[in-house]
Amino acid sequence: MAVRAEAGQKAVTARYGMWFFLYTEFILFGMLFLLYSVFRYRFPADFHAGAMEENILTGSVNTAVLLTSSLTMALAISAVKKGNNRLSAGLQLLTMALGIGFLCIKAYEWYVKIVKGLYPGSPVLLKMHPGEIIYFGLYYTMTGLHGLHLFAGVAVTAYMFYFTIKGRISADNCARLENTGLYWHFVDMVWMFLFPLFYLIT
């Protein structure tokens, strides 16, 4: 019992759980990517036409924002392990800010499209080619689901921030923060594929 319940063992158990959870997330998003590929194979021209609506500049900036948030999250974990809770808390705050920044830019992109009447089921959209209807359906579903995951990531990081400043996360006891990091980097990874598939195919 004493050997098994050790902190190290607990940390590794927690990490197993988080990796397994991420596998399920991978399959979840994976199915959407599969649907994307099948429909793109069906409607190559319509997908190109649809992607013309994407703003490559905001998309690229947003990608950079998310990559930077991954950096600050990784640094926050190293900082805690080095015993520097204050630095870690600051970096976590920065991570959350970048995550929210990403969501704001994303919301702006949605807003621009919605003002143009490009949203699922809209009269403008329903007059377009079937492939374009599918393209925008996928766009809203996939970026929306990704955004929800990122939002959950921000919320969980807020908890971790609270634990860190209260000292409940420390160099010896940081499995929770490490797992939050794993999740955050995974959500980031999903975007690494969403970005080229929606923004770079014009």
Partner: peptide
């Protein structure tokens, strides 16, 4: 773990199809 998420996303798309007009 590896099969249930497929159902999750599929049913989600049905619900989105019914309520938000996403017609995949």
């Amino acid at each position: 773990m590896l099969a249930t998420p497929v159902l999750a996303i599929t049913l989600l798309l049905v619900v989105l199809g019914r309520n938000f007009g996403i017609g995949l």
